[in-house]
Amino acid sequence: MSKKVLIVTGDAVEALEVFYPYYRCLEEGIEAEIAAPKQKKLNTVIHDFEDWDTYTEKRGYGIESHLAFEDVKVEKYDALIIPGGRAPEHIRMHEPLLKIVTHFFETDKPIAIMCHGSLLLTPIADVVKGRKMTAYHACKPEVESMGAEYINEMDYVDKNLISGHAWPDLPAIMREFMKQVKQAPVTS
Score class of each variant (00 low, 15 high):
residue 113 I to Q: 08
residue 72 V to I: 10
residue 159 K to A: 10
residue 166 A to P: 00
residue 40 K to V: 03
residue 179 K to F: 13
residue 81 I to R: 01
residue 166 A to T: 06
residue 175 R to P: 00
residue 17 E to A: 06
residue 75 E to M: 00
residue 96 P to D: 02
residue 106 E to M: 14
residue 68 A to Q: 04
residue 125 A to N: 05
residue 150 Y to G: 03
residue 157 V to D: 06
residue 145 S to T: 12
residue 161 L to T: 07
residue 160 N to I: 00
residue 114 M to C: 09
residue 29 G to A: 13
residue 47 H to N: 06
residue 126 D to L: 03
residue 112 A to Q: 10
residue 175 R to Y: 07
residue 161 L to H: 06
residue 152 N to C: 02
residue 184 A to C: 03
residue 20 Y to F: 08
residue 73 K to T: 14
residue 139 C to D: 08
residue 65 S to R: 05
residue 135 A to M: 06
residue 153 E to C: 05
residue 185 P to R: 09
residue 79 A to N: 05
residue 146 M to A: 08
residue 53 D to F: 15
residue 144 E to V: 12
residue 17 E to N: 07
residue 74 V to R: 14
residue 57 E to S: 15
residue 171 P to R: 09
residue 119 L to H: 07
residue 33 E to Y: 02
residue 33 E to T: 00
residue 142 E to S: 12
residue 112 A to C: 08
residue 102 T to E: 11
residue 18 V to A: 09
residue 180 Q to K: 15
residue 39 Q to E: 13
residue 128 V to A: 02
residue 111 I to H: 09
residue 83 P to V: 13
residue 153 E to H: 11
residue 119 L to W: 15
residue 55 Y to P: 01
residue 81 I to A: 04
residue 32 A to G: 03
residue 74 V to P: 02
residue 134 T to P: 02
residue 58 K to T: 15
residue 69 F to Y: 14
residue 46 I to N: 09
residue 96 P to M: 04
residue 42 L to I: 00
residue 44 T to L: 04
residue 90 H to F: 11
residue 1 M to C: 06
residue 164 G to T: 02
residue 100 I to L: 04
residue 53 D to L: 13
residue 167 W to V: 01
residue 11 D to F: 07
residue 135 A to S: 13
residue 124 I to G: 00
residue 42 L to E: 01
residue 58 K to I: 11
residue 137 H to A: 10
residue 182 K to Q: 13
residue 126 D to R: 12
residue 54 T to I: 15
residue 91 I to G: 03
residue 143 V to Y: 07
residue 140 K to Q: 11
residue 115 C to E: 10
residue 53 D to Y: 15
residue 11 D to H: 15
residue 82 I to T: 05
residue 88 P to V: 05
residue 66 H to K: 11
residue 18 V to D: 03
residue 110 P to L: 08
residue 39 Q to N: 01
residue 152 N to W: 07
residue 6 L to A: 11
residue 97 L to M: 10
residue 139 C to V: 11
residue 174 M to Q: 13
residue 11 D to W: 11
residue 21 P to F: 05
residue 6 L to K: 08
residue 68 A to F: 10
residue 72 V to K: 04
residue 56 T to G: 14
residue 180 Q to H: 04
residue 32 A to H: 04
residue 84 G to T: 07
residue 77 Y to P: 04
residue 62 G to I: 00
residue 84 G to C: 06
residue 114 M to I: 15
